[in-house]
């Protein structure tokens, strides 16, 4: 699926909860738990994306023209959000990642998670994933 199709799928999934924020958060935490474990060797300071209250680890793998990500977070909700990004971008070409406009965050009612850079690693995470893609496109 394209990153647009995947975003629409996520929006569909979340639409079940309407505006029940609590259920959305619980769902996010469940999604986070399903994220495959990171290779512990990759969970080092070098691959940390820092927010004020939550940390995210992000490790890129480039294989046959496509990017894959291992990711983790010390907070469950951020990890759930991160798992959505991984779902959208895993196995995409760097160009597609760079070209993606992320509109699902607002549509699932999570825009405040990208509002404040200080309070969580989510915004920095998006930037970091695009940076990895950018570096590959340039090469």
């Amino acid at each position: 699926m394209t990153s647009i199709e995947l975003q629409n799928e996520i929006i569909d999934d979340f639409s079940l909860f309407e505006d029940d924020l609590e259920s959305k958060l619980f769902y996010l935490m469940d999604l986070g738990k399903k994220l495959p474990d990171m290779n512990t060797a990759h969970k080092s300071d070098e691959f940390i994306v820092k927010g004020c209250q939550s940390k995210v680890w992000l490790y890129p793998i480039y294989n046959e023209g496509k990017l894959y990500f291992e990711a983790d977070s010390n907070t469950e909700i951020t990890k759930g959000l991160v798992s959505l990004l991984v779902r959208i971008w895993n196995g995409k070409t760097p160009k597609e990642i760079l070209d993606t406009e992320l509109y699902f965050i607002e549509k699932i009612g999570m825009s405040r998670m990208i509002g404040s850079q200080r309070s969580n690693g989510f915004t920095s995470m998006i930037k970091q994933m695009k940076m990895y893609a950018f570096a590959l496109v340039k090469e």
Binding site: E22, L25, M29, Q53, N74, T75, E76, I77, S119
Partner: peptide, 14 residues
Amino acid sequence: NKHHFDIGLMLDAR
């Protein structure tokens, strides 16, 4: 086993 950040968001949801 719960991070305070998650708890804060969960409480805010209520």
